[in-house]
């Protein structure tokens, strides 16, 4: 116990934190790219763009039907063969964002479809372009609807990014295994790794909850919020 706190932690924590930083970078970049991919795919499929939407549908299907770890390995080992040399980190970002993007496209599609078409008609009838209707009417609402799910995917991503350790990216888990290879202190090191993942996910969950509340406009807030304000509790 004493050794754990006073020897192992001071010695190995910094290296693990370096890994945690990579994990964060990996997750944030992948999430941002996945949002772009997911939204793009959703819009193409909703617009029923001739060939493109079929391709997008196939992408979503395939990417959801293959385990993430297999996708990462395929990307990591295939790309060099077709002449693309990506460092492990960027191969990881590519793999993760394509994977999450497939799921997010379905989230966005559902969120956009949930907006009544009468709202679109109202926009078109006053002379808005389809683009303006999306930008001003549909997306602001759809994004807020999708937000909690997006947050959930981000928290999963923080944890699932550990799979990228298999393609030699020095993120949190891999740094842990490197330490173990040298010290054979599996239990203690995995424990530290677990604690760091927990702290990151816990903090991310709080952050997501806070952002959600901040971005939830008055018109969507459940009555409980109003009640609290009315009772001057908040």
């Amino acid at each position: 116990m004493v050794e754990f706190f006073f020897v192992l932690i001071p010695e190995h924590f910094p290296f693990l934190l370096e890994g945690a930083l990579i994990t964060l970078q990996l997750s944030i970049l992948s999430m941002a790219a996945a949002v772009v991919i997911g939204l793009g795919v959703a819009l193409i499929r909703l617009a029923k763009v001739p060939i493109l939407s079929k391709l997008c549908a196939a992408y979503v299907e395939v990417w959801r039907d293959v385990p993430l770890i297999v996708q990462l390995l395929v990307i990591f080992f295939t790309l060099p063969n077709i002449g693309i040399r990506l460092p492990g980190f960027w191969a990881g970002v590519l793999g993760l964002s394509l994977n999450i993007g497939a799921y997010l496209s379905e989230v966005f599609r559902a969120a956009i479809s949930s907006i009544d078409t009468g709202q679109r008609d109202a926009g078109l009838s006053i002379g808005m372009s389809r683009f303006t209707v999306y930008r001003r009417v549909i997306l602001p609402q759809a994004m807020r609807i999708a937000l909690p799910t997006l947050g959930g995917y981000f928290i999963s991503l923080l944890k699932d990014s550990s799979l990228v350790s298999f393609i030699a990216v020095n993120e949190l888990l891999r740094n842990g295994t490197i330490i173990i290879a040298n010290t054979f202190r599996s239990m203690e090191v995995y424990f530290m790794v677990a604690i760091i993942y927990f702290i990151m996910s816990f903090a991310a969950a709080r952050l997501v909850g806070w952002v959600e509340m901040k971005l939830t406009p008055a018109y969507l807030r459940p009555a409980a919020f109003d009640l609290r304000r009315r009772l001057r509790l908040a």
Binding site: G118, Q119, D121, I126, Q141, P217
Partner: peptide, 11 residues
């Protein structure tokens, strides 16, 4: 145009 449904933009 004023429609049958209530389709003000809620946001």
């Amino acid at each position: 145009m004023v429609f049958q449904g209530l389709n003000l933009w809620p946001h």
